[in-house]
Structure formats: C-alpha cells, structure tokens
Design a binder for these strands. Sequence first.
DNA 1: TTGTTAAGTTACTTTTAGTAACTTTGTACT
DNA 2: AGTACAAAGTTACTAAAAGTAACTTAACAA
Lengths: 118, 118
Amino acid sequence: MRCKITEFQQEQKKRMRSVQDAMDALNGKWKIAIISSICCYGKRRFSDILNDVEGVSNRMLSKELKELEINELIKRTVLATQPITVEYELTDHGNTLQTIISELSAWGIVHRKKIVGK
Amino acid sequence: MRCKITEFQQEQKKRMRSVQDAMDALNGKWKIAIISSICCYGKRRFSDILNDVEGVSNRMLSKELKELEINELIKRTVLATQPITVEYELTDHGNTLQTIISELSAWGIVHRKKIVGK
DNA sequence: TTGTTAAGTTACTTTTAGTAACTTTGTACT
DNA sequence: AGTACAAAGTTACTAAAAGTAACTTAACAA
C-alpha cells in the first residue's frame, strides 16, 4: 500500500485544479470567441459581437455575456443613445487573457492546416 | 454605405476564425483537463486519467478521448497485460498545446484568488 | 464457483444549447 | 395618425450534449 503521495503528484494535482478553475470560467462554446471579439476592438456592442462570432445566437450571446460579467472578465455599459446601445469591454482581469487568446489563435491556424485543411 | 472592409477588420476576422478552430478541437467540458493529465505524466492509462480529472465519468472520458484521437492530439495504445491496459499519450501535435495549458494553469490560480477565494 | 480488474458500452434522465418569434422604447417615413 | 425600423434583449419550445447507474468481456485468483 502507498502511504505517501510524492511531491510531484501533489504538484500535478494543483496544476490540474488550476486548469479546471480556468476552464470553469471559460467554458461554454462561445466564451473565448466573445472575449476575443471584445479584446480585438477594445469596446464592442451587443450587435457587433453577434456579427463577429459566427454562429452564436442572441440568446446564447446574452447568456454568455452575463456569465462573463459575473466572473468579472467583462464590463457592461448602457449608453444613452437612441435606440440604446450597450457596450462591452474587458476588465483588467479579462485583459490578462490576451496572451492565452493570442496563443489559441496561433495554435488554431496550425491545427486547421493539420486537420481540417488536409 | 461602406464599400471597403479595412485590412484591420480582415485581420480580426482571421483571428476570430482561428480561435474558433482551436476551440472546436478543444471543446467539451473535460478535454483540456484530460490533455493536461496526460501531458503531466507523459503516458497515462484510462483509469489514471479517470482519477486525475475530478468529476469526469468513464462514459464522458471515453467519448472525449475518442474525439481527441480523431483530432490527432493523443495516441492510444493497447498493452497486452492482464487485464488489458490502455495507454494514452500526446502526439507531437498534442504536445504543442503545452504552453497554452501552462498559461491556463497560471491564469486559473490568479482567477481563483480573484473570484472564488475572495 | 464466485469475485476481481481494466476499459469500456448501453439505456435512461437531466442539463445545456439552438430556433424562432416576441418585447420595449424612441425615432423616421408616409 | 399609422406603420416601420433599430438595438438589446426575453420567452417558449425543440434538439443535442452531458450525467448516472448498471452491464459487458476476458483472464486470472481464491
């Protein structure tokens, strides 16, 4: 019987847990795409994001934006225009995702070449 | 009427598309966690991954592993032990996800401090 | 003969995502 | 005055994905 967990194994457990913590905030089919839309432009309105993110519906966009707001990754601002527009932007915390998104983008290009575009 | 799409906008579109390409390969609640389990240990058996990834069921693990194999991110090897064991390891292509996973792990730690562990 | 192990699969239920139509508020057109 | 349109959603309903629990297969050990 194993009585002592190695330091290495404990490290892996921590690593696994933190990866899951990240994914809990970013799960859902559209979140990363939504963040990258907002990220690219700085500020972005509901209908702009709806256009940027191919395939997302207004229902899903609304839902995912709410969850991103709860996780303090984006900030929602209602503008007193006519008709009203709503602007979304990344919080400082949301901005810390920039490197991850850049790398995902780079990886996506390689992956498409390898799998999709054979 | 806008007749010319700016170069900047075209760049963003490409960026968005490649992010989606990446996410298409990595979607599903458990894929990233599964990859990081295999990645940490080099080679990992079905039951090991089942243990590493907290909350995943054997049904889901089986399904996600199949999809990862289709996307050529992991390699499956049946060993002639008794009872048979199956080893999973990252392909070269799968290994290119290492930096993304490390960054997700680092981000997850920061995020937990900010949101969960307040 | 019964039990155990690894790596799954099957049948069934619950949760999540997708679709399409509707809402609200003010402005512009006829 | 009546109709239409726009932005940012919401609602009711359907389809797809994920979760649960029990079952399978093959070989070996008690």
